[in-house]
Write a protein that binds this DNA or RNA. Structure first.
Lengths: 163, 163
DNA sequence: GGGATCATGTAACGAGTTACATGATTTG
DNA sequence: CAAATCATGTAACTCGTTACATGATCCC
């Protein structure tokens, strides 16, 4: 369901695009929001076209197919945005390592938290490069905010473990 | 893979337990870390027993089966904790709504962010009840830290939208 | 005895990943 | 002309959810 919404949202926001284009967007601007590879996107677009939410607007070079959102697609997207209570499903390997930290001895735990800290720092560095405005800017702010919080947790936890 | 690790970690941390017990832990203490229902846990325990990572220690009333982690299981868990670089896969409906916020008009966007804010507040309230020490305390701190950051983002975004 | 909770499972489906496969076009 | 990139797809598999099914035990 959410994959559909993400695809509809991108088509609504940036205009008609190919599956290939959309896959690129997932890799870059949507990376900290929703992830999907081309092998998931191509079949989904076909299903969405069958359901009347998108339509092939034109076909370009190299078999390129440009999809556009339909008015039915716009309606579906709008309804979801306005009415859908976002479900919170957390599956975080990082949080799992944090959870199990007390099973390790001091030095191991420190090494694990250092790796987690580096991961947060790297993600934050990527997010800092995201534009401050335009579609996705709110999500980028949310990502920066939460990643900074993770980084701060790592620093505090390291201080605590070293004490 | 991570489901296995979560199950091994729980068995290591709290001692032998049944699938039912483990499902309860997922519902409560692991809720902000990893999610899994009993329909996923029961078959996984059977596979893990076949792989020698856990063993049925005893059987109690009402067909209750108590699993214990084996030394091979402990080794597997330890290796994962120390060596595995946590993979970051984000699929957040909340972030998706944030991403698509610019597609809504002002009042709709405000209503959506208010709902998101309430969701963060509710999660934070639950996390505040988690014990400050023992297994899971580090993960609870991380969850509190990141959820607070989400809440702060919502407040700032609301202020921005109302301006 | 009846309702809540304990306790385990299966089957069908949908979502997501990995590996494989193919060919067109552009750029050096 | 070779390598990179564009562009699409399928198949097999794993992971996760929903719905269904069953029975034991505890407590009022």
């Amino acid at each position: 369901m959410s994959l559909r919404i993400a695809l509809l949202g991108l088509l609504e926001a940036v205009g008609p695009a190919s599956g290939y284009d959309l896959a690129k967007k997932f890799e870059h601007s949507l990376n900290h929001v929703w992830q999907a590879g081309h092998t998931q996107i191509y079949p989904e677009l076909v299903k969405m076209a069958a359901d009347g939410l998108v339509a092939i607007e034109s076909e370009g070079a190299r078999g390129r197919k440009i999809y556009a959102i339909t008015s039915e697609g716009t309606r579906e997207l709008h309804t979801w945005l306005v009415e859908h209570q976002p479900a919170v499903t957390i599956r975080s390997e990082t949080a799992l390592q944090a959870f199990l930290l007390p099973l390790l001895d001091r030095d191991e735990a420190i090494a694990v938290v250092e790796r987690i800290r580096d991961g947060f720092a790297a993600r934050l560095a990527v997010l800092e490069c995201h534009p401050r405005d335009g579609i996705g800017s709110y999500a980028a702010n949310l990502g920066r905010s939460q990643t900074s919080a993770g980084l701060a947790w790592a620093e505090e936890t390291l201080a605590d473990l070293r004490r």
